[in-house]
């Protein structure tokens, strides 16, 4: 598939607020991305015109009840059928920050046995409340996740987080078993780590929110649905880095670009 033929839908509702910079990342790579309000998609029933769907960051519907919970229920109620078809056809879905929360609430992630009717994990309140800071990440996905294939082996990535609820948790009594399932199915993608790539072991600040197993991002069984708490769209250009003024020479792009490039590589390989 050619880049210019790919159509991306960046979906928003009231309270979504990272749509513009997410759209910009796609545009920068030569891909058409439309920012669409849920109300428009419901009215025009054209979700399936898109090859991929992105849920950007923000505070959808104020994140009342639980982060992402209302948006997820609205999706099921208003766009459930189209969304099912979308998933059944393995069209990629990306959730960033609030988008990740929506995917978990919607039962798409982890989705051990396919789409779940209830959330199988939780993105709970951070151990230290809302934090906006840069973190280090490593990719531990072996091959399945289509959003991390372009990340060089062993590379420590740098991206910012900005959330109050991103502590990935499983039910306490099942956490080890479910983690094993994640690993066995190659569903773990990004984990928080220290600057040199060493395990964060749950310790602040390397693990900024207290996530179980330092999890920052996971994919579904098929590797086509991916959610992450850090913001790749805020680590796209060199001048977005927190210390570019201190460097002699900066690479032109930030590490966040690798996520978008991996995805486009997936499309390029498709007929």
């Amino acid at each position: 598939m050619k880049l210019q033929d790919i159509r991306v839908c960046v979906m928003r509702v009231g309270g979504t607020n990272c749509d513009a910079e997410t759209q910009r990342a796609f545009h920068e790579l030569g891909v058409q991305a439309d920012v669409r309000h849920l109300n428009e998609l419901v009215k025009q029933r054209n979700l399936l015109d898109y090859h991929m769907l992105v849920f950007p960051g923000g505070f959808s519907y104020g994140d009342y009840v639980r982060s992402g919970a209302i948006f997820a229920r609205m999706l099921t109620a208003k766009l459930g059928k189209d969304l099912r078809s979308f998933i059944d056809q393995n069209r990629p879905i990306l959730g960033i920050c609030n988008g990740f929360q929506i995917l978990v609430e919607e039962g798409l992630l982890p989705g051990f046995e396919g789409v779940s009717d209830f959330p199988e994990a939780s993105l709970a309140n951070n151990s230290r409340g809302y934090r906006c800071q840069w973190v280090y990440l490593k990719n531990e996905n072996k091959s399945k996740c289509i959003f991390t294939t372009k990340i060089p082996k062993g590379k420590v990535l740098r991206m910012p987080i900005a959330h109050g609820e991103g502590r990935f948790l499983f039910p306490k009594e099942k956490e080890e078993a479910l983690l094993q399932k994640l690993i066995d199915n190659d569903m773990v993608a990004l984990r928080y780590c220290s600057k040199d790539g060493a395990d964060a072991n749950g310790k602040y600040p390397a693990n900024p929110n207290g996530s179980f197993h330092d999890i920052a991002g996971i994919c579904n069984r098929e590797g086509t649905v991916f959610g992450l708490m850090p913001h790749p769209e805020r680590a796209f250009y060199w001048w977005q880095q927190p210390d570019w003024t201190s460097q002699q020479a900066m690479p032109q792009f930030g590490d966040g670009k690798l996520i978008f490039e991996s995805l486009l590589d997936h499309f390029a390989k498709k007929l």
């Binding site: 910079e21 906006c132 900005a162 913001h231 805020r234």
Partner: peptide
């Protein structure tokens, strides 16, 4: 740090 100073991705 409890304020998001990065959203919109334009904070240089």
């Amino acid at each position: 740090r409890s304020y998001d100073h990065e959203v919109k991705g334009n904070t240089a």
